[in-house]
């Protein structure tokens, strides 16, 4: 791994980030001549046009929507470099960064547990299916993977919340709103979170497990046909050595890539599920911001998600180049 590669890669990341910020700024403003218009009060009788203009201008300044769009863009970028994501239009004008900080952990509870469970169980199942290649276990996995990919997670979530939540009342179908407000790291609070998270995680994990299992299976089968596996056997290595030292070690390379992709989509991946279970995460926050035309919050969330994805990609590449000596950091993209 050469330093020049690393520098090139980081510069590219910064460039992409700037483009992303620009897009996140301008896309919500497409075709909107005056985004602040929805906050203007009606022009009361007896108010002169100048007065009304003044009031409108005050509102624009309040929301940071004064000046030309380009001027706003420059201001926004300047703020961003000082680490300020702006102020939300929500009542009480909270800082965008505080809104995100409040909701992020709850999304992470869902998506991280989903990712880890999918990864571990998926790899186990996939390895087993590769082992039993062509037998019923393998066929079951293949069918399960087409079926679960065709079943959207939100439909699984609805079915789960219908039966496990409403009919049999095993798990809560709606998240207890006190859970997030009064979280205090007590055992009680943690168990409440786990209890509430059970259904959403379950709904997400089904597709995740199957997808990891399927790619693990394909990868293991592809690798176990490679010549070096034969060499390893010809050396007289035990089966365990061959499988863990050579087959799985090489088969995990594409899984690392897939895992990295999933990590980069970690925050934005549970929007619909959060909506169904009324989970106070980033998805819900974003939907609220969207319906309120809350520009700073919308942009803040999208920029945050993109930054997260960029960092995740960078880390994945780094980890990958450690695992596969044939690949240098700058090369794999």
């Amino acid at each position: 791994m050469k330093a020049s590669y690393v520098i090139k890669r980081i510069l590219l990341t910064i460039f992409i980030f700037l483009v992303v910020i620009t897009l996140c700024f301008f896309i919500p403003r497409i075709g909107v001549s005056d985004p602040a218009s929805r906050y203007y009060p009606a022009q009361t009788a007896g108010m002169s046009d100048e007065e009304y203009e003044y009031i409108k201008e005050q509102i624009r300044i309040q929301y940071g929507l004064n000046g030309s769009t380009f001027q706003q863009y420059i201001n926004y970028m300047a703020d961003l470099f000082t680490g300020d994501l702006g102020t939300s239009y929500q009542t009480g004008s909270p800082k965008v960064i505080d809104c995100i900080a409040e909701c992020l952990p709850w999304t992470l509870v869902l998506s991280v547990s989903n990712l880890l469970i999918s990864l571990v169980i998926g790899i186990l199942i996939g390895t087993m299916a590769a082992w039993k290649r062509g037998r019923w276990q393998d066929k079951l996995l293949l069918n399960a993977s087409t079926i679960t990919t065709a079943l959207p997670a939100f439909f699984i979530a609805l079915i789960l919340s219908f039966y496990l939540g409403f009919e049999w009342e095993i798990f809560p179908a709606y998240t207890d709103q006190n859970m997030t407000a009064n979280f205090d790291w007590s055992w009680q609070a943690i168990s409440t979170v786990m209890y509430n998270a059970a259904l959403p995680v379950f709904a997400m994990v089904i597709g995740g497990i199957v997808s990891y299992a399927q790619s693990t299976r394909n990868s293991v089968i592809a690798v176990s046909g490679d010549d070096f596996i034969l060499t390893a056997k010809a050396k007289g290595l035990s089966n365990n050595k061959v499988i863990y030292g050579h087959t799985l070690r090489n088969a995990m390379l594409p899984i690392v890539t897939q895992f990295g992709m999933n990590v980069s989509g970690l925050i934005g991946g549970s929007v619909v599920i959060e909506q169904i279970f009324n989970w106070n995460g980033m998805g819900t926050l974003f939907l609220t911001a969207n319906s309120n035309n809350d520009y700073p919050l919308m942009m803040g969330i999208m920029i945050f998600m993109s930054a997260f994805a960029l960092v995740a990609n960078l880390l994945t590449d780094f980890v990958y180049s450690l695992l596969d000596p044939r690949v240098t950091l700058g090369e794999r993209r």
Partner: peptide
């Protein structure tokens, strides 16, 4: 690269909104 990094569902939501 840019499109892979931007969260697609939120952006789709914004675009349909606009």
């Amino acid at each position: 690269d840019v499109l892979l990094v931007i969260p697609s569902l939120p952006l789709v939501i914004v675009m349909t909104n606009v």
